[in-house]
Amino acid sequence: HNLTITQGKLFFHYNPKLCLSEIHKMEEVSGTKGRQERNDIALKTNGDQASCENELLKFSYIRTSFDKILLRWEPYWPPDFRDLLGFMLFYKEAPYQNVTEFDGQDACGSNSWTVVDIDPPLRSNDPKSQNHPGWLMRGLKPWTQYAIFVKTLVTFSDERRTYGAKSDIIYVQTDATNPSVPLDPISVSNSSSQIILKWKPPSDPNGNITHYLVFWERQAEDSELFELDYCLKGLKLPSRTWSPPFESEDSQKHNQSEYEDSAGECCSCPKTDSQILKELEESSFRKTFEDYLHNVVFVPRKTSSGTGAEDPRPSRKRRSLGDVGNVTVAVPTVAAFPNTSSTSVPTSPEEHRPFEKVVNKESLVISGLRHFTGYRIELQACNQDTPEERCSVAAYVSARTMPEAKADDIVGPVTHEIFENNVVHLMWQEPKEPNGLIVLYEVSYRRYGDEELHLCVSRKHFALERGCRLRGLSPGNYSVRIRATSLAGNGSWTEPTYFYVTDYLDVPSNIA
Rank of each mutant, 00 (worst) to 15 (best):
F462L: 06
K287E: 01
V359F: 10
Y500G: 06
W242F: 07
I377R: 00
V345K: 09
H454N: 02
L280A: 15
S458I: 07
E495L: 06
T343I: 06
N422K: 14
T288D: 05
V345S: 12
R376A: 01
C468Q: 04
K278E: 03
A335S: 08
F285V: 03
K460N: 13
T307D: 10
N208Y: 09
L280V: 11
E442K: 10
A309Y: 11
P300T: 07
F215V: 14
T485N: 03
Y478T: 01
S344G: 06
S398Y: 13
G374W: 06
S262A: 07
L470I: 14
P434Y: 04
C231E: 04
L293C: 02
L437C: 12
F355R: 06
G412I: 04
V334R: 12
H352T: 11
R318W: 15
C269M: 09
S479W: 13
V365E: 04
E290S: 03
F372M: 10
S444N: 07
I377T: 02
Y478D: 00
E388F: 11
P300H: 08
P312F: 08
S203Q: 06
L235N: 08
S248R: 08
A335D: 15
I410R: 02
S509Y: 13
N435P: 01
R481C: 06
K432C: 09
T272N: 08
Y504Q: 13
D250R: 04
I366Q: 05
A488F: 08
L505D: 07
P314L: 05
S251Q: 13
D222E: 08
A381K: 09
V501T: 05
Q275T: 04
S320G: 15
T373G: 14
P300W: 14
G472R: 08
S458T: 07
G472L: 08
R316Y: 06
W242S: 09
L225I: 07
L437K: 03
Y230P: 02
F298A: 09
H416L: 09
S398N: 13
F226E: 07
S492M: 09
C267K: 03
P403S: 03
D273M: 12
Y478K: 01
K357G: 10
L237M: 08
L225K: 09
S304I: 15
D250N: 14
S367M: 04
K406H: 11
N421F: 03
I377A: 04
V296H: 09
T347E: 11
V439T: 09
L232C: 15
P387A: 14
P338C: 09
P244Y: 15
P349R: 14
L277M: 12
S284T: 09
L235W: 11
R318V: 14
A395E: 15
S304D: 12
S320K: 14
G489P: 03
T494Y: 02
R218V: 06
E279H: 06
G322P: 13
I410S: 05
G368D: 11
L235P: 07
T343P: 10
L487Q: 03
K432T: 13
E362T: 12
V501A: 08
Y259T: 12
K236M: 05
T401R: 01
F215L: 13
L487H: 01
S320Q: 04
E362V: 15
T494E: 00
Q384S: 08
Q380W: 08
G308C: 11
S203E: 07
L277K: 14
N477P: 12
R446L: 12
E388K: 08
V334E: 07
S257D: 07
G472T: 09
K278G: 14
E404Y: 10
G374T: 05
Q380T: 15
V358G: 11
Q219K: 14
R318D: 11
Y230Q: 06
V329M: 12
E433W: 13
T288Y: 11
Y212S: 07
E282R: 03
H416W: 10
A220E: 12
I418Y: 13
P244T: 11
L437D: 15
E281F: 10
L379I: 12
Q384I: 09
R286K: 07
I377E: 00
T386E: 11
H352L: 09
N326A: 10
N383I: 05
V299W: 01
E350W: 05
V457A: 08
D222N: 14
P338S: 10
K278L: 08
T401A: 07
E452Q: 14
Q256I: 12
L277F: 05
R318K: 12
R471W: 04
V331R: 09
L453Y: 00
A399C: 04
R376V: 06
E249I: 09
V327I: 06
T485V: 04
Q252S: 12
R286F: 05
A263R: 12
P205S: 08
Y445A: 11
L364V: 10
K432V: 12
L470G: 02
F372N: 03
N206S: 04
T288V: 12
R447Q: 13
A263C: 08
E442H: 09
E290K: 03
R286Y: 04
H211T: 08
S398M: 04
I276R: 10
E290M: 02
H416N: 09
P431G: 04
E495F: 14
Y259S: 12
G306D: 12
S257N: 07
S243V: 08
A395L: 09
D503Q: 13
K357Q: 09
G368K: 07
P338W: 09
S367W: 12
Y504P: 10
V297A: 04
A381R: 03
R459C: 04
R390G: 14
G476W: 01
F289G: 02
S398W: 11
C468G: 02
P431W: 02
K460I: 10
I209N: 12
H461M: 12
G476S: 01
E258W: 04
E310G: 10
S239E: 09
M402R: 03
V393W: 15
A484N: 02
E452T: 07
E417M: 05
N255K: 02
P338Y: 08
R483E: 00
V334N: 08
R313N: 09
S203Y: 06
P205H: 06
F215T: 09
R481N: 05
R400W: 09
S398T: 15
D291F: 03
N360V: 13
S305V: 09
T415M: 12
T303Q: 12
V439R: 13
D311T: 13
E260I: 03
G472F: 07
P354A: 09
P245R: 05
T401G: 03
F215S: 10
T494S: 14
F226D: 09
K317R: 08
L437S: 03
C267Q: 04
Y478H: 10
A407W: 05
S342T: 10
A381Y: 05
S251M: 11
A399V: 11
D385F: 13
S203P: 02
G374L: 13
K271V: 03
D323S: 07
S223D: 14
P338G: 12
K233E: 13
R319V: 14
L232D: 08
S342V: 10
F246Y: 11
R240T: 13
A335K: 10
E388R: 09
I482G: 03
E282P: 05
Q380L: 13
N208P: 13
E356P: 07
E452K: 05
G412R: 11
G368H: 09
A463D: 13
I377W: 03
Y448F: 11
E227Y: 06
E404G: 12
F462E: 02
P403F: 03
F285Y: 09
L437M: 07
P312T: 13
E389Y: 09
H416E: 09
T347Q: 12
D408N: 15
C267Y: 08
E356C: 12
P403H: 04
K236G: 09
I377S: 03
F289N: 01
S274C: 15
L235S: 04
G467N: 01
T415Q: 12
R370M: 12
Q219T: 03
L473K: 02
C266L: 08
G467P: 02
E227R: 08
G207S: 08
H454S: 04
V443Q: 00
P245D: 09
